[in-house]
Design a protein around this nucleic acid. Structure first.
Lengths: 197, 197
DNA sequence: CCCATTTGACACCCAAGCGTATCAGATCGT
DNA sequence: ACGATCTGATACGCTTGGGTGTCAAATGGG
């Protein structure tokens, strides 16, 4: 329990700990985003991160806990890029938000897979649903306020657009859509306008 | 190796074998569709099916093989319902096809989950992508023939609609869309027309 | 009624992965 | 330079699940 802080390799104790934690998260993004969460063990993570098991349990107590941390970091970074884009767009034009989102999801297939697939399985279901809810609420920020039974219809379209986004990203990464990133953005902006009332 | 066919419980040898195989597939649909493929073991399947391990290996050699069989049976049954609906609709109106599809996917949350989530993970990726491809080609049967770079844009919209379908089904099963099945169908018909060129 | 076949319950071995412990070498403060 | 701390490699016990084997009870043909 005695605090033993000491510089090692030019870093303080907390710096080393944070750096190891980040290496584990990076390893998680790599393995979860390629093999899938269910196919990854603690030993795999440690090998990928270049660490030993002791340092895994230093920051996490299970694979699921790491998966949550990876998912939260990925989505948080995405939100950090999307929200300013919304503000920059004045909250009227969805293109800046879509551009920011797709630059994140199309630049890294691991991110796309995490959001579109892994976020719906196992321990990530809760957090994946939460992210989807955030995205749906984001949709409403671009839509006129409605009331009554039309509101649920609008909500359906929000989920529809969220699913469309995920599926198009996966298909694009699979190489079945021969388009540039900017072309995908253009098309999805049109899809948005087609779906928005 | 000697064939030993014999009636047992009022069934022939092949009848008993087929019935056991079907019970395993039913157990797979139940467990894969609720817990997810990755969280199910052979022992779980046998317990759910009320069989012993010997009869699992009688029909399958691994969990993934059973998962493929379950997925194929589910999708085949869906195709069997959708294709006649297309013909009945004369190939012009998408509503009959959507009705048939959604009656299958909304009536059973396990089916919805298999199609929307499990079909993208592990050993089912290949077959899930194949089903998505079939669905995309189905889309083209409702769309006017185009050529050049607009064809890839149309393909993007096909994937977009496929993703929209999956996500809406999941959201509906989660209870966040307070609509009847027929109302969901109506909304998705509108979404289709909004997306179709 | 007797025996071969079929079935179910259970035991067994083995590999893989988790969680913990041990120990030598590297690094830093004094 | 010396001792305390930090690190990496390895080993160990344990549980879980896959795949195989054994044996008695149930069933149906002759």
């Amino acid at each position: 329990m005695a605090e033993s802080t000491r510089v090692y390799g030019g870093m303080s104790a907390v710096e080393r700990r944070d750096e190891r934690r980040q290496r584990l998260i990076d390893a998680g993004l790599e393995l979860f985003g390629t093999r899938g969460v269910a196919a990854v063990g603690i030993v795999d993570i440690c090998a990928e991160a270049g660490l030993i098991k002791r340092y895994f349990y230093e920051s996490f107590s299970s694979i699921d806990e790491l998966a949550v941390a990876v998912f939260e970091q990925v989505t948080d970074r995405l939100v950090e890029q999307v929200v300013p884009a919304i503000i920059a767009g004045g909250g009227q034009d969805p293109r800046p938000a879509l551009t920011a989102y797709l630059h994140g999801a199309l630049a890294d297939p691991r991110v796309a897979r995490l959001l579109a697939v892994e976020g719906k399985t196992g321990a990530l279901t809760k957090y994946g649903d939460g992210f989807a809810t955030r995205a749906v609420e984001l949709w409403f920020s671009f839509s006129p306020a409605v009331e009554g039974r039309d509101e649920v219809a609008l909500r359906l379209r929000a989920y529809a657009f969220a699913g469309a986004l995920s599926q198009v990203c996966l298909a694009w990464h699979d190489g079945v859509l021969d388009l540039t990133v900017d072309q995908v953005i253009d098309e999805l902006v049109e899809v948005f306008h087609a779906l928005a009332p």
